[in-house]
Simulated assay, not measured.
Amino acid sequence: MSLLKTSGWIVPLLLVIGCDGTPHEPAEKNEAFAVALPALTIIQNAVVSLVPTINGQRNDLMMRQVCALARGEASQDQVSQTLREQGIDLTAIAHKDHPMSLLINTDQSLRITACAAFVATSAMTLPKTSEFMVEAKTDTPESKNTKGLVIDLQKLNRFLGVQLAVAKADADLFALMATELEKTPGLTLAHYNQRAQSLFTALAPAYLQRVKELYASGINTTFKLLEYSDSEFKFSTSSGHLFAYGYDGLNFSLNRIPWYGEGKLLGKTYLLDVAYFDPQLTSLIEAQAGKRTLDTPVKP
């Protein structure tokens, strides 16, 4: 089923934009001197900002616990026990301003949004070796003190299946969000960022379900790891997808058609007319334009 035809994605959008199609929180528009910027970059930055961090860094251990709570896969007592075993002081994160207070906060909607943002951006980072590699088993005395890593094929296939599902869900969701954002041209970057965050928050539960469904539907897909280094990660699939992450971010294609990346989503470039320049600068340009008009001689 096409995502754009799935009613589960449409209902949350109505909550954000209103049943009559008007936004609940209208923002001042200024289409004069607007610059067309890729919606993908704006949406991606908005979603990244929704991921809780500690000292500016992602914390996979804690966010996986947040996701376990958000999905109902673990109870509060189980998560608390896991954190204590990791030497984490729960009283230190009890304050609501702590980035990981979601671990003990009972607001499920906040957990779901944070989890969805964490999952959505997981395809935009280099994977750790622990995701699909294990220590090599050595039996010879010469290699007893030497540790090496080898790929665990079972872990690799599962991890690549998850990455594929996330990339596909990101492309679907971000395209839907871009379509909605295009309906309100002339906003500032800050307003587009706020609008994108509101849309993602409304769609977060459906997004997590979408990832789950896509992973299940791709269970028979075969994968080929093409490259893995400290700067690049690339794999291809039997379904015609190519996943590549490097210095220029995530580039995901389907049968050579850009599905995510290079400013494109589902093969299309979505552009937002952004009120990009400072109002003082645009007023100077308008004044200069008016001066040129006055200075232009009138033909008899």
Results as ranks from 00 to 15, higher is better:
L13D: 03
G261I: 01
L83R: 02
F243M: 08
V150D: 10
G148C: 08
T41H: 14
T106D: 14
A171E: 03
T282N: 10
N105L: 02
L156G: 01
A275R: 07
S122A: 13
A117C: 04
L156K: 08
G87H: 06
L281K: 13
P205M: 04
T282Y: 03
T91V: 04
A204C: 00
K183V: 05
Q76T: 14
R256F: 11
V35E: 12
V48R: 15
Y245E: 08
L69R: 06
T6Y: 11
S236A: 12
L281H: 13
S231I: 13
C115K: 07
L153Y: 13
E180T: 09
R84G: 00
A116F: 06
Y270P: 03
A117F: 02
A34S: 11
K224N: 13
A206Q: 12
L189W: 03
G56W: 04
V51M: 09
F252A: 06
V35C: 03
A167H: 03
I104L: 10
V298T: 11
E25M: 09
F243G: 01
I43V: 03
Q108W: 14
L156W: 07
F243N: 00
D97W: 09
P141H: 08
Q154E: 14
S7N: 09
A114G: 01
I104P: 01
I112S: 04
L164R: 04
S231G: 00
G267I: 07
N105W: 02
I88D: 02
H241I: 06
L13Y: 10
S231H: 12
Y215G: 13
S101I: 02
R292T: 12
Y215K: 12
Q154V: 12
G267P: 04
L4C: 09
V47H: 06
A202S: 05
Y228M: 07
N220S: 14
S253N: 09
A32H: 13
Y192A: 04
S49I: 12
H24M: 09
E213P: 00
P23R: 08
H241N: 10
T140R: 11
T113D: 09
S122M: 10
W9P: 05
T222V: 11
I88V: 11
V51H: 07
P26Q: 03
L126F: 07
A74V: 03
T53C: 13
T179M: 11
K183I: 01
V11C: 07
E28R: 14
R256A: 15
Q194E: 05
F223V: 03
L69T: 02
T188H: 02
I54A: 10
E25D: 14
L294T: 09
I104G: 03
A171T: 05
